[in-house]
Structures are given as structure tokens and as C-alpha cells.
Amino acid sequence: MGEIAGVVAAAVAISVFLVFLRREMASIGAQVALAFVIVALLTLLEPLRRLIDAFWELSRGAGVRPLYISVVLKAIGIAYITSIGAALCKDAGEDAVGAVVELAGKVSILILALPVVAAILDVLVRLLPG
């Protein structure tokens, strides 16, 4: 994990720059924060890919249906993107935009989980006749 040291060093240096930039040019300060977030997450994405591959292997070994695992992974991905987007919007001072981004994430995760919820309700209805 050599990339961790680079990410942390960049975070400290960028924080020092941002003290100046947020005061003098708030718009470019927000963009620098966004650029840092993107670069840091891009470096973390490769370990994450390995982690998710291991997760798939474990679930295949345990015999879980791939549909359920893929729903969980997609929900994690959507939560990842939308929480970062919402945090960046709030950082730039736009709380309302951030709240809408969070709402969009919740709605799309619910839509994603709809087949699973329907399957659970189906089982329940079959278990409780009448």
C-alpha cells in the first residue's frame, strides 16, 4: 500500500493551500478539493477492486445467489458516488443541492432493491396463506 503515503501527504499539503485559496478564491478552492477527492479515490479504487473480487469469490464459495451480491455491490457503489457528491456540494456551501444528490442516491438504491423486496413479500405471502 505505497499509495497511502502519497494520498496522506497530498491531503496535508492541499489543506495548507486551501486555507489561502478558500479565503481569496473560494471557487477554485472548492475545485481543488474536488480534484483531490477524485485523485485520492482513483488511487483507492484499485485496492477496492481487489477487495470486491475477493468478496465475489467468497460468495461463490458460500453458494449465495449472484443476484443478491450484485444488488449489494451496486448499492455500495451508488452510495459511494452520491455521498461524495453530496459532501462536495455541501463543502461548496450548497446544502440544498447536496440534499438533492443524497435523495437521488436513496431513490436509485430503493429502485435497485425493489426485486429483492418483492421476492421477500412473495415468500411472506406464500408462508401466510389467507
Binding site: A10, A13, I14, F17, F20, L21, I28, Q31
Partner: peptide, 13 residues
């Protein structure tokens, strides 16, 4: 890339 953007921001400020 981050340092380039931060430098550009400082120069422009």
C-alpha cells in the same frame, strides 16, 4: 494534477 490546480488558483488569486 492537484498541485497544478492549486498553483493555478494561487497565481490567479
Amino acid at each position: 494534477v492537484i498541485y497544478q490546480i492549486a498553483g493555478l488558483g494561487i497565481i490567479i488569486a
